[in-house]
């Protein structure tokens, strides 16, 4: 799974990323200096997607602009969120299309793990 995050992180697009299962970080490439961002992302996206589920809407991505950075959370399946940290001025479409490529690889890896 750590190798997959290596594919998510892309210089100039995604600085670092992590995968949330429920409220837990199961794998992360956030450095020590960015650990606070990871904590904020964990609390924010678990709260947001819990609210989305409660309101029964179909939103599956969330972006939080904090300081000069942007935290993006992509709901891959219920309870599983991919979090990315990028520059706040980076076009969201770039982040979104980059994640689309990786999304199925992460989900496949999850399936493989369940079958193993």
């Amino acid at each position: 799974m750590k190798e997959l995050l290596g594919k998510v992180d892309e210089p100039g697009i995604i600085d670092c990323s992590c995968l949330l299962k429920g409220k837990d970080v199961i794998v992360s490439s956030f450095s020590k200096s960015k650990r606070n961002h990871e904590t904020i992302a964990k609390q924010t996206f678990s709260y947001l997607f819990l609210n989305v589920a409660k309101q029964k809407t179909k939103h599956d991505e969330a972006h939080l602009e904090i300081g000069e950075q942007r935290l993006s959370g992509f709901l891959l399946k219920p309870g599983l969120v991919l979090v990315c940290l990028s520059d706040k001025n980076l076009n969201i479409t770039k982040v979104r299309s980059h994640i689309q490529h990786i999304k199925h690889l992460i989900l496949q890896s999850e399936v493989d793990k369940m079958l193993a």
């Binding site: 904020i40 947001l48 939103h59 599956d60 969330a62 972006h63 939080l64 904090i66 950075q69 969201i92």
Partner: peptide, 27 residues
């Protein structure tokens, strides 16, 4: 609720900078 959340983040993690906006999207 999102607005409430941004206030909470600003309170607890103001050192990371101002929370400017939150966007929710989907197909």
């Amino acid at each position: 609720n999102i607005d409430r959340l941004t206030d909470a983040i600003s309170d607890k993690a103001g050192f990371l900078g101002k929370v400017n906006n939150v966007v929710l999207a989907g197909p």
